[in-house]
Nucleic acid binder design. Structure first.
Lengths: 346, 346
DNA sequence: ATGAAAGCGCTAACAA
DNA sequence: TTGTTAGCGCTTTCAT
C-alpha cells in the first residue's frame, strides 16, 4: 500500500493525498478531499513508509536512549517513562546499552547517528566524556539523564541529589547519629561527586563528625564495590550510620557488616539512594531516597521532543523532587558505639 | 557525505562505489577500485544512509524485541543477549514494552511493522494470542522467547521448564519433603501451564502427595499474586514445601508465610524459578532454578538472523539447559508438620 | 485547492 | 569490470 494507491482510490494526485494525510499540511486541502483521502487510506489500511518519508525529510522520528547497563534495575523505569512520552509524540525509541564502557558509548553514538536518530537521551554520561562533548558540539538534540557531564551545556534531568542527601542526614540525626559515614559513588560520575560534596557540606553544617576517614569512595556503583568500601571504612572508623552512594553500594555495605558480625540497624544504620525495585524485600528492608525514575525519563523526553520539534535548544538542568523512604535498615544510634567514635575522632 | 561524493573523489561512478563498499558485491569490482573507493570513503568519513538503502532494498536491518515488562528483572538479560548477537549481525534492535496488555502488543506489532522491521523477537506471547497468530500467517520472521503460543509454528527458545521442575522436586524430596505444593503461574501463559503440568506428573511419579489442594494457580507472575496464592494455599493444606511458578511468586509466598508467623525454611521450604538478579540477597536467599536468560536471548537472535538472511523459516523449539541453585530458602522437612499434612490429606 | 515534477541517497538490472 | 539508468515512496516547490 503506497500513497499512490491511496491517491488513485480517492481520485486525487499523490501530492494532494500526502497533504491530506499530514496534519501539518492538512489545511492546504479542502475538507472534502481530506475526508475522501482519509477514507481511502483507512480502507486500504495504508501505512506511510517511514523510510521514504525520512529520506525526503531528513528526519527519522527515532530517538536513541543510551543507558550504561540495562540490567541495572535503575534504568528500566527511566526507559519506560521516556518511551511512553516519546511514543506519544510519535517517536520510536532505540535503546543502546554501553555496558559501562566509554568505547562502547562512542561506538553507540556513531551507530545511532548513522541510523539518523533525531535525538538522544543519554544516561551513560561520565563527567569527562569526550563522546558527549562531541555530541554537544555537533548540535545534536540530546538530553542527559541522571548523570551530567562537565563543561557541556546540554540539558539534564536528574533527581534532586542535594535534597536527598539532606533528607537522609536529617533522618539519621533524628535517630541520634553523629558519626555518619559516606560510602560515595565514583567521583568520575556527577552523581558520585555531587552527593559526596553535599554530604560533606551538610555534615559540617549540622555539627557532625567531619573526620575525613568517614568518607570512602567506592570504585563503582556495585554491590561488590560497596562491600569493599565498607570493609575499608570499618578499618578506619567506627561509624554508627552509613549513607551509601546508591542502593547497590548499600546492599554491599550490609553484606560487609554481616561478614564482620555487625548488625544492621542495631549496630550500624544504612541508607541507600534510588529506591530500586526489591530493596524493600531485603533483610533488613532498605531505608533509601526515592528518585522518581519514570518521571525523570518522561521529563527528559519532553525536553528532547520540544528541542527536536520547536528547535528550542534548552540547556537548563532539572532536578526532580525526591523523598526519603524509611524502612528497616535505619534505627536509633547505639549509645556505646557512638561514644567510642566521638572519643576516637574527638 | 553521500555515495556520490565518495564516487567523485575516487573517480568512479556511484554505482561502482556502491558495489565496492558492499561486501556482498565487492567481488564484482577490481581490487584496485575497491581500495580507491574504500580510501575515499574513509577520508570523507562516509556513512551510508540506511533510509535510502532501505527504501531501495525494502529492508531496514532493524529487529524488534517485544517484552511484556522491561521492569521485570527477567527481561533485561534476555534483551542484552539478543542485542549483542543482533548487532554482531548488523541489526539494530528496537525494544517495545507491551505492559502486559494484549492491546498494546497488537499496537506494538503494527507500529513495528510500519517501521519495516525485518524481524521480531517476541517475549510477550500468550497461549491464545491472535496478534502472534497474525504475525505467523503473514510469514514475518519472528522467534518466540520464553513463552510459546498455541497452534503457531513459530520457533521458540526457552529454558528447559520440565527439567527445572524435575530438579526442584528432586531437591525437595532429598530434603525429605512429600507434601510439596505448587504456586503455579497463570495457565494462559505457556510457562504456567507447562510447569504446572510437569509438576503434577513428576509429583505423581515420585509418590508424593497428589492432593489437588496442593496446586494453586496465581493470577499473574507477581509478588502480590504470589502472596495471595500462598494465603489461599495455606487455608486448604499444610505443605512443607512450595515450588513457585517463578521468583516473584516465591517472594510473595515468603511474605505470606511471614505474615502468618511461619518461618522459611524451618516450617516451609520455598523454591523459585528463573534466578532473577538480587534473589540471592533476600532473606532467606532464594533457592531457585537458574535459566540462562542471556543465552536464551542470544540463541533466539541467532535463529532469527538465520531466518532473515538465509530465509530458513525454522519452527523448531529450543529448550536451553537449566540448573538448580540451592540457597537458604529450602531445608529439611519438619517432621511434625509433614505428619500433620499426610493426616489431613490422606 | 490541486496537479506536475523533481529529487532525497541508494541499489540493481541492463548495457557496454 | 564498469557505466548507465530507473526507481524505491514520499514531500515539496512551483505552476495552474
Amino acid at each position: 500500500m503506497t500513497l499512490r494507491d491511496v491517491a488513485e482510490r480517492a481520485g486525487v494526485h499523490p501530492g494532494t493525498a500526502s497533504r491530506a494525510l499530514n496534519p501539518e499540511t492538512q489545511d492546504l486541502v479542502s475538507e472534502a478531499t481530506v475526508r475522501k483521502v482519509q477514507h481511502a487510506a483507512k480502507v486500504l489500511a495504508y501505512r506511510p513508509n517511514p523510510m521514504a518519508r525520512g529520506l525526503k525529510t531528513n528526519r527519522s522520528t527515532m530517538v536513541a536512549i543510551v543507558v550504561p547497563d540495562l540490567s541495572n534495575p535503575l534504568f528500566p523505569p527511566i526507559v519506560r517513562g521516556a518511551e511512553v512520552e516519546l511514543s506519544r509524540a510519535g517517536y520510536t525509541s532505540i535503546i543502546a546499552d554501553t555496558d559501562n564502557e566509554a568505547g562502547r558509548e562512542l561506538a553507540a553514538f556513531a551507530a545511532l547517528r548513522a541510523r539518523q536518530v533525531d535525538g538522544l537521551l543519554v544516561a551513560s554520561a561520565r563527567r569527562d566524556d569526550p563522546a558527549i562533548a562531541e555530541l554537544f558540539e555537533q548540535g545534536v538534540p540530546a538530553v542527559l539523564i541522571n548523570r551530567r557531564s562537565d563543561g557541556v551545556a546540554l540539558p539534564a534531568v536528574t533527581g534532586d541529589d542535594e535534597r536527598g542527601i539532606e533528607l537522609a542526614i536529617a533522618h539519621l540525626r533524628e535517630l541520634g547519629h553523629t558519626a555518619i559515614a559516606h560510602l560515595s559513588g565514583p567521583r568520575e560520575l556527577s552523581t558520585g561527586l555531587s552527593r559526596q560534596r553535599t554530604f560533606r557540606q551538610v555534615i559540617a553544617e549540622t555539627g557532625c563528625d567531619t573526620s575525613p576517614d568517614l568518607v570512602v569512595e567506592c570504585e563503582t556503583y556495585s554491590v561488590e564495590a560497596g562491600a569493599e568500601g565498607m570493609h575499608e571504612l570499618l578499618e578506619r572508623a567506627r561509624p554508627t550510620a552509613v549513607l551509601a552512594g546508591n542502593d547497590q553500594i548499600a546492599v554491599g555495605a550490609i553484606d560487609a557488616l554481616r561478614e564482620r558480625g555487625l548488625r544492621c540497624p542495631e549496630d550500624v544504620s544504612v541508607v541507600g539512594f534510588n529506591d530500586m525495585p526489591f530493596v524493600d524485600k531485603l533483610s533488613p528492608p532498605l531505608t533509601t531516597v526515592r528518585v522518581p525514575h519514570a518521571e525523570v525519563g518522561a521529563e527528559a523526553a519532553r525536553i528532547l521532543v520540544r528541542w527536536m520539534t520547536r528547535g528550542e535548544a534548552a540547556s537548563a538542568t532539572t532536578a526532580l523532587p525526591v523523598e526519603l523512604v524509611v524502612r528497616g535498615s535505619t534505627g536509633r544510634a547505639p549509645v556505646r558505639t557512638a561514644q567510642a567514635v566521638s572519643n576516637t575522632s574527638g
